Simulated scan of single mutants.
Amino acid sequence: MENYTVDEYALCARFKSKRKKRRLIKEDFEKQLIELRKLEVNLWKKRRNLPLVPLEVPYQKGWQRNFKLRDDVARSSEASFYRELLEKINTWQFSPEKSFKRKKKRKRKHVYVENIQTVKEFSEWEWKSSKLELTEKEKVHFYKRERWCSNCKRYKIHYVFNEPWRYVLRVSPYMITHAKMVDSDLESQIQFIDNYIVNNHLRYKINRLIKGISHKWSYYEKENPKEISPIKNKSLQALYQQYVDEMI
């Protein structure tokens, strides 16, 4: 009678070998991580689709700046044309200061310089796109301009509005009148999943399973709560155990 090893006997008897069992356990865990990622994305979508709720008392949060028609242009016969064009090329800027100045380091000193704002310019790709909202009459008021791009290290073509004097900047308070609705149950579910992934260092593994790579995205670069402070660690464990007990 021949002697067989355990793996050979398992293969003949159609039993699962130890290696196959470990592989099945690993595959099952990876499937659970994929499903967990899908659940997390669905919860994010639900939070993003929550409606806006009007505030009882609106408040001001800085200042906003955009363009408007100059007074003499608004009284002219072509006011409607330039008003419609402005809706397509208008730009907005937001700043906590009414002066709209930004801090810049110059000669080892921080100085405040004027923040330049212009109407929208179109790249060559946008200009040739079929989704461009400009009419043929409106395109006549733009000219081609080559500008050096420091990122691409080459000249790039832009289409610039040739009559910017027709518009002037308008500064107005930026008022917050609505706020995003907050769902406490939804937030607790998102935080529970995030704590599980962060505490067990599973974010990189999930990225590798979903996308094939495990980049260190800045959004996920968080410290492990277990390594921050033992006091915070105890409070986190108490909250975690309380949540588990409620779920059960």
Rank of each mutant, 00 (worst) to 15 (best):
Y155V: 07
F67I: 06
L55T: 06
E187Q: 11
L43W: 10
N195A: 15
Y196A: 13
L132F: 05
S214C: 15
K131S: 13
T135W: 14
P96H: 03
K101S: 14
L24N: 15
Q241V: 05
I228E: 08
E163Q: 15
L11M: 11
V53W: 06
K107Y: 13
M1T: 03
K18I: 07
P230N: 05
V111I: 15
R166D: 09
K180Q: 07
W125V: 01
K216M: 04
K16G: 06
E221C: 04
K205P: 02
W92Q: 07
W92D: 09
S76A: 08
R23D: 09
H215C: 09
W148I: 13
K46S: 09
V53R: 09
Y220F: 12
E114K: 09
E138H: 08
N42L: 15
I228N: 03
R47H: 08
I89M: 11
M181H: 03
L236S: 05
N42P: 04
I206S: 05
K234D: 12
N151R: 13
L36F: 12
T91P: 03
E138I: 05
A10G: 00
L55Q: 04
K45E: 14
C12E: 07
H201S: 13
N66D: 04
Y240T: 10
P225W: 00
H178K: 08
I248C: 10
E136Y: 06
S80C: 01
K156W: 00
K88W: 01
P173H: 06
Q60C: 01
Q241P: 00
A238R: 12
A74K: 15
A238E: 14
K31L: 14
Y59N: 11
R47A: 03
L186W: 01
K211Q: 04
E146A: 13
T5A: 11
W165Q: 10
E227I: 05
R65A: 01
E187C: 07
E126P: 03
F192N: 02
K18Q: 07
F29R: 15
I228G: 04
L33Y: 08
Y219K: 10
L50D: 01
N224M: 01
V140I: 06
V57Y: 08
K205I: 11
I193D: 09
E84D: 09
Q242R: 15
E78F: 11
R203N: 13
L11S: 13
I25Y: 12
W63C: 02
F192D: 06
Y196N: 11
L209K: 03
S129V: 01
L36R: 10
K222A: 09
M247V: 12
E227C: 03
S95A: 12
R23H: 11
R19P: 00
D245Y: 03
K216Y: 07
L69G: 07
H201K: 15
S77N: 11
S77R: 15
Q93T: 10
T135C: 10
E56H: 03
R102V: 07
K21T: 04
W63D: 04
K131Y: 10
Y219L: 11
